[in-house]
């Protein structure tokens, strides 16, 4: 049932993103990517949070299900972080003139990619499953702790081209015309559900593989 709803929701998002006028008139047609780029970036951060949360639960319970949940979330997070980087890069090349210019958001997504990369490098360097789960859980928590510092640091060190006040302004009020938000928020919800769906499938696959293997 919810799969049909998700299908309808995503179809609505995709169709209306192209049929309605572009969200930012000043940026032109390219700004339609907003409806896909921002939710994808949001999912990559959400996956990181889910991964950390399950890492904590693993360390508390030592139940290997949580390790599978944590690592699967990180895998999907890596994929979405990659997609966000690529889509953001394309957008940047059109509106700012270059694919990569170390804008704060680009730095943050790059660091997220680095953390995911390091996480999987660590996992591939350990043979024993239990050891792998514990050490990667610890690393996941440590890297999560460093992230707030990065959010504070990066804007001080690098200058931004990203519109800081286009979606949310200084008083944390949403700055969007109702027409845009009617597409944007369904897109956000749709991508979030999509993430949990893929995650759930991934967890099931891994659990089956582990059972078969031993």
């Amino acid at each position: 049932m919810w799969k049909i709803l998700l299908f309808l929701l995503m179809s609505y998002v995709i169709v209306s993103a192209y049929l309605n006028p572009a969200p930012q008139q000043s940026l032109g047609e390219i700004s339609r990517i907003f409806y896909f780029h921002v939710p994808v970036a949001w999912v990559s951060v959400l996956a990181f949070l889910v991964s950390m949360f399950n890492a904590v639960r693993y360390l508390k319970t030592r139940d290997w299900h949580y390790d599978i949940k944590s690592s699967s979330a990180a895998q999907i997070g890596l994929l979405f972080a990659f997609l966000a980087t690529v889509s953001g890069s394309i957008w940047a090349s059109v509106s700012w003139g270059s694919y990569w210019n170390w804008d704060p958001r680009q730095v943050s997504i790059f660091i997220l990619l680095l953390i995911y990369g390091a996480y999987f490098a660590l996992r591939s360097a350990i043979m024993e499953n239990e050891k792998k789960a514990t050490l990667s859980a610890v690393y996941s928590i440590l890297s999560f702790i460093a992230v707030p510092f990065l959010i504070f640091v990066i804007p001080r060190v690098f200058e931004s081209l990203h519109p800081a006040t286009s979606v949310v302004d200084e008083n944390l009020k949403i700055q969007m015309s109702p027409k845009v938000s009617l597409i944007f928020f369904p897109a956000l919800i749709g991508f979030t559900i999509l993430f949990f769906w893929i995650w759930n499938l991934q967890v099931k696959i891994f659990a089956l593989k582990l059972k078969k293997g031993g």
Binding site: L122, I126, M127, L142, L150, V153
Partner: peptide, 19 residues
């Protein structure tokens, strides 16, 4: 505790040490 030891340190610490 890993099988690679030395080489991993840089990869793992860089994202945490960036701030």
């Amino acid at each position: 505790k890993t099988d690679l030891k030395g080489t991993l340190l840089t990869i793992l610490s860089f994202p945490l040490l960036l701030p």
